[in-house]
Design a protein around this nucleic acid. Sequence first.
DNA 1: GCGACAG
DNA 2: ATCTTGTCGC
Length: 217
Amino acid sequence: MEWPRTVDDAVALQERLRTQVITTSAPDLHINTVAGLDVGYRSNDTVAGVCVVFDAKTLVVLDEVVVEDTTDFPYIAGLFAFREMPVLLRALDRVTVVPDLLVADGQGLAHPRRFGLACHLGVHTGIPSIGVAKNAMGRFEEPGHARGSMSDLVMDDEVVGRALRTQDGVKPVFVSVGHKIDLDRACAEVLRLAPRYRLPETTRRADTLTKQAASTG
DNA sequence: GCGACAG
DNA sequence: ATCTTGTCGC
């Protein structure tokens, strides 16, 4: 696969790939397995990538993989997919259960060029994907207090995602489409993945493994 | 020039 | 992301 080495090349690649994003769900999209992907940092250039696959209905963990790697691309808001993609793809490759949906720890279309990490993962693999971020990249009005309440996430006068309250009274999470799924479905899946805590189980588990790898071998 | 800026 | 203890609350 082609990989940029400079900021300009990275931006150009995103501009080119963004045209391939599909923001609708196939009529036969059945989500039985969901993968959570996350990256942890041991040092400035040593990373641990995690891919955890859950049964979407029971939220039972079916498989989980942790891989370590090094990275040379620096963290730049808007380009951080180039820092995390390589490790995540390696982790995804080693998983034995093929996921029907990828949940990225970050943005999808809610990105300056409408091509965040979730879009990169989706377009690269062809697997439906969504982004669930803890912080917003864009403006939004506070959603209602109750779990399930949501409001538009707006960037440049364009709706790029949604602020979604996953639990009563907690800070909302920011959901945006990555690829091959519509926003309503994306939000419904996030709610199903977060029956008890603010963050979806996919993110929680991946994050735990990520930190475990960072402190262990 | 100044402030914003996923992880 | 990461540096970091106890503590208040359901």
